[in-house]
Simulated assay, not measured.
Amino acid sequence: MTDRTNGSLRVNGATLHYEVRGQGPLLLLIPGGTGGAASFDGIAADLATEYTVATYDPRGMSRSTLDDPDAEQQVAEHSDDAFRMLELLSPGEPAQVFGASSGAIVALHLLTAHPERIARVVAHEPPAVEVLPDAAEHRALLTRVQDTFRTQGLMPAMAVFSAGLKKDGAAAEPKAELKLPPQAAARAEQTMANLPYFVGRIVPGFMSYAPDIHRLEGLSDRLVLAGGQDSRGELPYRSAAFLAERLGTELQHFPGGHIGLTTHPAESGELLRKVLHTGGPTSLL
């Protein structure tokens, strides 16, 4: 088992908890949603046989504390946190970066802000809905989510949010009960503890973010956009697919849905390794 080193990094307005495994070129894993460093436990050890794998709890999540718990959250500040991690762990050397969901939005901003520090970014389903032709509809969704959170509370707001992420016009399909790996199931309590901050601060700050598409066009050779095989048509998948088409690149498909790295860790880790090696879409076949 690969040894893990924990540390803390002081950044503007927060103290970040981070974890490092392995040796080799730096691979920074940026979690999304309510996940923290632990959300990559299923893939980090295997990748650490080849990379120095670093991940962290985003500011305000889990063990990364905010100086001001009520501070508004901005993508640019979270991106600067990721940049500080690169400066700490890979000074002067370009790094590989993987971001999931809201972490993928951070990774996109990091690429445009500090391209000299990035060898490659793999962005899995960034919910950058401002790039979509029907962005106004999704702005209205965000308003409904925040209004519901304020007037009815957390779980009704989550219900509105989840319904808005589903496939366009599709009735909710019955799904088999999702069985999470034991490590992921054990994190459920922390995930729930992070939900109010996620809904109240991350969702409005991140889903209103518009990536610099013109800048990304000039950096597209270092960017792989990805989506889940099982989340085709859902809102974060649509954003990733639209960006890939706009940039003239091929969308990489990972196993599972939006949280495929949690539900299919072995297959996802293997595919991520292949993508990092080839620099573009590939498959497990």
Rank of each mutant, 00 (worst) to 15 (best):
A163K: 10
E93C: 13
A104Y: 04
V75H: 11
D57K: 13
P127F: 09
E125I: 12
A184D: 03
G92I: 12
A123E: 03
D46G: 02
A100Q: 15
G103P: 09
A184P: 03
L89P: 04
M158G: 04
G103E: 06
G153M: 12
L47R: 00
M155C: 05
L165F: 05
L66G: 10
F161C: 08
P174G: 12
E116G: 09
E177K: 15
E130R: 15
E93N: 12
L108N: 01
A54P: 10
S64R: 12
D168Q: 14
T49M: 01
A172K: 13
V160I: 15
E177S: 09
G169L: 12
A135C: 04
P115I: 07
D147V: 10
D67T: 14
E116W: 06
E50H: 04
P69V: 00
A184R: 01
R120I: 02
P126H: 00
A82I: 03
T55K: 01
R117D: 05
P69C: 00
A45P: 00
F98Y: 07
T49D: 01
G99Y: 07
H124A: 01
L47A: 00
S102L: 07
S62Y: 00
H124L: 04
A123W: 06
T112H: 04
T151G: 05
E77F: 03
A159W: 02
Q96D: 04
P127C: 07
P127L: 09
L108K: 02
S162I: 05
Q74D: 12
V106W: 10
A135H: 13
P91M: 13
A45C: 03
P156W: 10
H114E: 09
H138D: 05
D67V: 08
V145C: 03
T112Q: 11
P182M: 13
A48H: 01
A113E: 02
T65F: 06
D168G: 02
D81I: 06
L132R: 11
T143K: 14
F149V: 01
P115N: 10
L66Q: 07
Q74P: 03
E125S: 04
D46Q: 03
V53I: 14
S64A: 08
P174M: 14
